[in-house]
Computed example of a mutant assay.
Amino acid sequence: MTGVFSDLVGQDEAVDVLRRAAESAARIVAGTATGNGAMTHAWIFTGPPGSGRSVAARAFAAALQCERDGAGCGECHGCHTVLGRTHADVRFVVPEGLSIGVGEMRALVLRASSAPSGGRWQAVVVEDADRLTEQAGNALLKAIEEPPPRTVFLLCTPSTHPDDISVTIRSRCRVVPLRQPPAEAVAEVLTRRDGIAPDVAAWAAAAAQGHVGRAKRLARDGDARTRREAVLAVPRRLTGIGACFDAASALIEAAEAEAAAAVAETDASEKASLEQALGAGGTGRGAAGAMRGAAGQIKDLERRQRSRATRSQRDALDRALVDLAGFYRDVLVTKLRAPVPVVHSDAKQMSAAAAERWTPESTLRRLEAVLACREAIDLNVKPRIAVEAMMVTLWEG
Rank of each mutant, 00 (worst) to 15 (best):
D16W: 09
I28D: 15
A250K: 09
E302H: 00
T81N: 11
G52Y: 05
G47C: 07
R306A: 07
A268G: 08
T191Q: 15
S269K: 15
A224S: 11
L190S: 05
S117R: 14
L141N: 05
F153G: 07
T334P: 01
R111V: 04
A347R: 13
P177L: 01
L218E: 07
R19E: 10
V29T: 09
V15L: 10
E134C: 02
T239H: 05
W203H: 14
V152L: 01
A59P: 15
M390E: 10
R85Y: 05
A355G: 04
G326K: 10
G213E: 13
T86D: 11
P116K: 07
T46C: 07
V189G: 10
E258D: 15
A61H: 04
L232C: 03
G289S: 09
R374Q: 15
H161P: 03
M391H: 07
G3Y: 03
C66N: 07
E145S: 04
A112E: 08
L278F: 11
L190C: 03
H80A: 12
A107P: 06
I100D: 10
G195Q: 03
R227F: 01
L155W: 13
A277L: 10
A56M: 06
I100W: 03
V109R: 00
V392R: 08
A353E: 15
G52M: 07
S171M: 01
Q313Y: 12
D323Q: 05
D330S: 02
W203E: 12
A129M: 08
A25L: 00
A183S: 14
S51Q: 09
S114Y: 15
G296T: 11
A115L: 12
G242E: 08
I196R: 04
D89K: 06
P95H: 11
T86R: 12
A185I: 06
A206E: 07
V152I: 10
V263T: 13
T359Y: 02
L141R: 06
A264E: 13
I377Y: 03
G74C: 04
Q276H: 14
A277Y: 09
D7L: 15
C66M: 08
A208I: 05
V55F: 08
D130G: 01
A325F: 08
I144G: 12
R236K: 13
A259E: 11
R311E: 09
E184I: 13
K216T: 04
A56H: 01
S24W: 01
A243C: 08
E134R: 15
T191C: 14
A33C: 03
E229T: 15
M390R: 14
C79I: 05
G326D: 04
R192L: 08
T160C: 01
R384N: 06
T133D: 01
G78K: 06
R53N: 11
R131N: 02
A204M: 05
A219M: 07
V342Y: 06
L110F: 11
A247Q: 09
V9R: 11
D346P: 06
R179C: 07
G137K: 00
G84Y: 12
R53P: 15
A219C: 09
D318Y: 06
A224G: 03
M39N: 10
R111H: 14
F60L: 10
E265F: 03
L8T: 00
A143H: 11
